[in-house]
Design a protein around this nucleic acid. Structure first.
Lengths: 128, 128
DNA sequence: CCAACATATTGACACCTGTCGATGTCTGAT
DNA sequence: ATCAGACATCGACAGGTGTCAATATGTTGG
């Protein structure tokens, strides 16, 4: 099997991060490079990195827009925009409770993305 | 000034990738997020991802501009530009032999970068 | 129903970026 | 010395991106 050892419900993210094989495995085709680049562009921004880091370090694992606005020092629409980019990329989930919107990490999404960059055979063995 | 002694230092890369702690460790500060974002922007491009992948999968570990131009289907100045971005980011090294310029992976650079994205306490250096 | 609030969307703006043609620079060979 | 070839740099252009003010949407409480 290629991957997806246990993917019961979190498919969209893993799907996004499983766009292609690890970089060092085989030369990337044009379309694979496009997909991976789109994922990386989603996180290649200071504000979005701080948002990811903020969510990842929360005890309860979630952050609302209002909190993030204070921490980042950006206008509310800007924060909403960045959150949307991360959700669209499949890295965060959005849950609206009452008036507030809570964002949380999609489990395994960042790690899967990191796995595509590692040159050392990390997980799944690769018998060529 | 432009004399850049062929210092065999592998430091700049690791230095670049060690700009900050892993995302999930502590909330990123503004300047740390800037540095990490600059690194990620360097690889968040289809052409540069293909170049990295091309170099990483070569048996001898190096690729010259001419070869890359053919594979990517881009003009020679464009390929040179992308290589320069990757070298400046500390991900590739450039060695000129005769008329040709050979690019190779900086050992551990990509892996260090990937380590900053992983949420699970990975290997990497665990000081302090 | 209405007011207050949190969030999302829209529109506009300045800025950055990928691309290529033209040109410069350096090396190896005739 | 001169020429050809590989590569880097420059200048210019189109397209993408981050930011915010203004506005829209939707929810809670009175």
């Amino acid at each position: 099997m290629t991957t997806v050892p246990t993917a019961p419900t979190l498919l969209p993210v893993l799907d996004a991060a499983s766009c292609c094989e690890p970089i060092a495995r085989a030369p990337l085709a044009a379309d694979q490079a496009d997909q991976l680049a789109r994922l990386l562009k989603a996180i290649a921004d200071p504000a979005r990195l701080r948002l990811l880091s903020l969510v990842a370090t929360q005890d309860d694992g979630e952050v609302c827009t209002c909190d993030a606005t204070d921490v980042l020092g950006l206008a509310q629409p800007t924060v909403s925009h960045h959150f949307k980019v991360l959700v669209d990329a499949g890295l965060l989930t959005r849950e609206k409770r009452g008036v507030w919107a809570y964002y949380a990490l999609v489990p395994g999404a960042l790690d899967a993305l990191a796995g595509l960059l590692t040159t050392t055979t990390a997980t799944t063995t690769g018998p060529r």
